[in-house]
Design a protein around this nucleic acid. Structure first.
Lengths: 334, 334
DNA sequence: GACGAAATGTGAAACGATAAACTGAACCGT
DNA sequence: ACGGTTCAGTTTATCGTTTCACATTTCGTC
């Protein structure tokens, strides 16, 4: 902690090359100055190990080379995977990541978005937890924003990676219906103010079509959040014959609960997840789940943002199609 | 993207209150000015929704309220968990997190550390991937640094959360030894320049003591990284009777490989992990692993840093003791 | 009622980089 | 030889905040 780290500054280079600060600034970027000067400056910069100060640059208002990544909850395994994939993809484009975790709280999400904007990120990639409040409209109006796996109603985004919830949910419910299930509990990740989340809406629609009796139960993300809830649902008199979890993380907690209660899966109860985390094929029993290509989502999201930053103004949108991965956790009603 | 977001500035408050910028700056922090002025200024600030610009503040040299979190590889499930825990803990202290992922590359790790320093983080929490290079000494000398689960040789840190590798590894090897295993493959997360990683050293030491034949195989972190390697090891003529993976993520890949080859675990081969990810008890078969309390590690790491920032100068250190969680993936040699 | 010390406030410089506007000089064609 | 470009720089202002040094006013005290 001794001396406060003296990184070389542009001024130092200026002094040592007998040029003005401005000249150095231009030369470093290879603009305007004569070839000889540019060479001389860059040599000196290399010699001193100069790296432009991102903070100063940000204050002045230029590009920062940093993108904000805002996820709904890092407690969710799948979102961890997504965050990693996006982060890695951003880096392959030479962009840095400022990751923020709303931890399931829509209000916190907004605060964090504003904080990221204040940090002068060049753009924002959001996997929203809640529906858009009014402030989102404003944020997205000023900061190129791409949404992944969720909408920000009303906000004008530069790209959108949507997941076809209707089809995904539909496939699950048809699968369960075909296996003879009729009473299904749906564990949805709970957040205060989101009465009309697409996935839940899809559940109601599809359930109505198939004539299924679906009860939607709000649930916390984490393992420790869903397990107690699962215990409650599973202990009921008229236990459902299947549980459909709108996130694999939730499903894991339910599996855990089943194990504690001595319930066999899928003989006593079928369990289906959503998002298909890489470990879902390894758990016991392997979890039936809806797979969306994380890599494709990450690539698209980053691609949209990068394109926009490169000046391509048109809004982009991709809808990622689901694949139902049927594994051993779902079986016929017995 | 229209107008470049006009957040209210300190100057705006100054104008509307007929005070100097300086006065407002002081008043906002409740210093110097008269009570009346302070009140007036803060009221105006609240009215305008003023929030201090972190970038400007950082440039000037003050606290930024942001901590850099540098993890060796977010591809590793356990490190995802750790990152989340630390992030959450930091937030409970009102600190923001700037997360960077070295993706297994020690050089990248250094670059990122410097980048974080340039972003003026108040401190750094590092789960290092490689051993310290010389630059780390310099970085840590200028920036309060806490290490978690790894050392930065030579660097003077303000806190250290160490994991007792020797005991952890010892317990595993004794466990396997007691089960009759003698030829053990150890899959270690590979990184270029780390010939003397503590865990590997511990393996060699303990293996010597117990008279075990341990081969250390370097391995990538991810599922996709360890699976092919596992296939190779498992297909050998003189296949080891047990595989000890120095990370649960690696173990998952190995489990996957066993399944593909039709090997039964633990009848045909025993598998042990390291770190005990929450899902390890749910995979098939449940994975024997070495548990360290993530929460305790996160709390300690953040606590050390916060204490230091609060002026407590003494260096802190905690050694987290392992607990061997014996589950079904390890069994006697048959 | 004069004197020093608080209390309260102001202006200017600084943090590091960038952009707009300006200054000479060299160079062009006519 | 003259006005107009272009080149290669320099000056100056700016981003939003903090802090140092200084200028007033107020106050208690002898």
């Amino acid at each position: 902690m001794a001396t406060p780290a003296k990184r070389p500054t542009i001024r130092q280079i200026a002094e040592e090359t007998d040029l003005s600060v401005t000249a150095v600034s231009y030369a470093l970027r290879g603009e305007r100055m004569s070839a000889a000067t540019i060479e001389r400056v860059q040599a000196k910069a290399a010699e001193l190990g100069y790296v432009a100060d991102p903070v100063a640059r940000a204050l002045r208002g230029g590009r920062t080379g940093t993108v904000g990544l805002l996820v709904g909850s890092l407690a969710d395994f799948w979102q961890q995977t997504l965050a990693h994939a996006i982060q890695r993809e951003l880096r392959s484009h030479g962009l840095h990541t400022l990751l923020a975790d709303a931890d399931g709280d829509p209000d916190e999400e907004l605060v964090l978005a504003q904080r990221l904007a204040a940090q002068r990120v060049d753009g924002l990639i959001v996997a929203p937890v809640g529906p858009a409040g009014g402030s989102w409209v404003e944020i997205a109006a000023h900061l190129p924003t791409v949404t992944v796996a969720g909408q920000l109603a009303g906000a004008e985004v530069v790209g959108e990676v949507a997941f076809d919830q209707t089809t995904g949910v539909g496939e699950v419910l048809r699968h369960l219906h075909a296996l003879g299930h009729e009473r299904i509990a749906v564990l949805s990740w709970a957040v205060g103010a989101s009465p009309d989340r697409p996935s839940e809406r899809a559940v109601r629609e599809q359930a109505a079509i198939l004539g299924l009796q679906c009860e939607i139960v709000p649930c916390a993300y984490s393992l420790d959040g869903s397990r107690p809830l699962a215990l409650e649902v599973l202990s009921r008199e008229d236990r459902p014959t299947a549980i459909f979890c709108l996130s694999d993380s939730i499903a894991y907690g339910v599996l855990h609960g089943c194990r504690e209660l001595g319930l066999r899966v899928p003989e006593d109860i079928s369990i289906v997840g959503f998002d298909d985390h890489p470990l879902s094929r390894l758990v016991d029993p392997p979890l039936t789940s809806v797979n969306w290509s994380v890599d494709r989502a990450a690539r698209s999201a980053v691609g949209f943002l990068v394109d926009h930053l490169a000046g391509q103004a048109d809004e982009r949108r991709i809808v990622i199609a689901p694949t139902l991965a049927v594994r051993a956790s779902s079986g016929p009603v017995t």
